[in-house]
């Protein structure tokens, strides 16, 4: 191999550093060889009165750890908002413009995979309050949601950007801490507890790991038409992505002895 790999199935060294950012609820920096991504999660509050069409949710429904359970209806609302900034991370990625199609594709993929893996629990993001219903009984109703703005800045794009982004996001989610939020009937709004002891982590469902592979078919390259065989590379670096005619990109997700592609 000419890239930074010694083996086709060996990923580059991964380093994860968490909770470095002051103004985030959770943050992490992931380095995968020469690729680096910084993820920061900002939690904001969406009051129930600001939801024009609230999704039909059952607050009494039991919470499940099963990642194959159907997606909670809460996620019909955009309460998990990932965005990727990749400008400046590699030559040709111009800064100061609208997100490139690559950045848009990455963000869309992150969002669909966050939903698909069910890693975030809707019940962690709900803020509830007690209210008296028509029959005079006290019941629990939705006061609002925590909205997670997950912003990822790719500092260095040296191949396999997606895996670095995913590791950074997972690292940030795992150390995210939300304050205790309670309904204040005087101000008719959600007020949070400033005591650091009230912070609670998100109860993530499993720990899905991304592993991307690239397929390289030499016969498609100029001057290599007689080459037989197909190569599968794990964690391709910038050189391998840029110079090889990559046929396809596959991302496998491994969680709880299950493969999802």
């Amino acid at each position: 191999m000419i890239g930074s790999h010694s083996q086709t199935m060996q990923p580059r060294p991964l380093a994860l550093n968490t909770s470095a950012l002051t103004h985030s609820s959770g943050s992490s920096v992931a380095r995968l060889g020469g690729t680096a991504a910084v993820a920061g999660i900002r939690a904001e509050i969406l009051h129930a009165r600001n939801i024009p069409e609230p999704p039909a949710i059952d607050l009494d429904a039991p919470d499940t750890d099963d990642p194959s359970a159907p997606l909670e209806p809460d996620f019909a609302l955009p309460i998990v908002v990932p965005n990727i900034e990749i400008a400046g991370a590699a030559p040709g990625l111009v800064a100061g413009q609208a997100p490139s199609s690559r950045a848009q594709a990455l963000a869309a993929r992150v969002l669909s995979l966050l939903h698909l893996t069910r890693v975030i629990r809707a019940s962690d993001l709900r803020i509830t309050r007690k209210a008296v219903n028509e029959d005079g009984e006290e019941e629990e109703v939705l006061a609002g949601y925590w909205v997670l703005y997950i912003d990822v800045h790719v500092i260095s794009a040296d191949g396999n950007v997606f895996d670095a982004i995913w590791f950074a996001i997972l690292g940030a989610l795992r150390n995210a801490r939300l304050p205790r939020a309670a309904w204040n009937s005087d101000s008719e709004s959600v007020i949070c507890d400033a005591d650091p002891a009230s912070l609670r982590p998100l109860r993530l469902r499993g720990n899905p790991v991304a592993a991307s592979f690239a397929v390289f078919e030499p016969a498609l390259e100029k001057g290599l038409r007689d080459e037989k065989g197909v190569w599968v590379l794990n964690d391709p670096d910038g050189f391998e992505e840029g110079y090889f005619h990559l046929l396809d990109y596959l991302t496998a997700f491994l969680f709880e002895h299950r493969f999802d592609i």
């Binding site: 900002r42 939690a43 904001e44 509050i45 969406l46 009051h47 600001n50 939801i51 609302l77 955009p78 309460i79 908002v81 990932p82 965005n83 609208a98 997100p99 848009q104 963000a107 869309a108 969002l111 909205v147 703005y149 304050p179 939020a181 204040n184 709004s189 959600v190 007020i191 949070c192 507890d193 400033a194």
Partner: peptide
């Protein structure tokens, strides 16, 4: 439309101090 947008009307948390 080129970014993933959050719901309208979110606000940073207010704290009781």
């Amino acid at each position: 439309r080129r970014r993933i947008n959050g719901p309208a009307g979110t606000a940073p948390p207010s704290y009781a101090i």
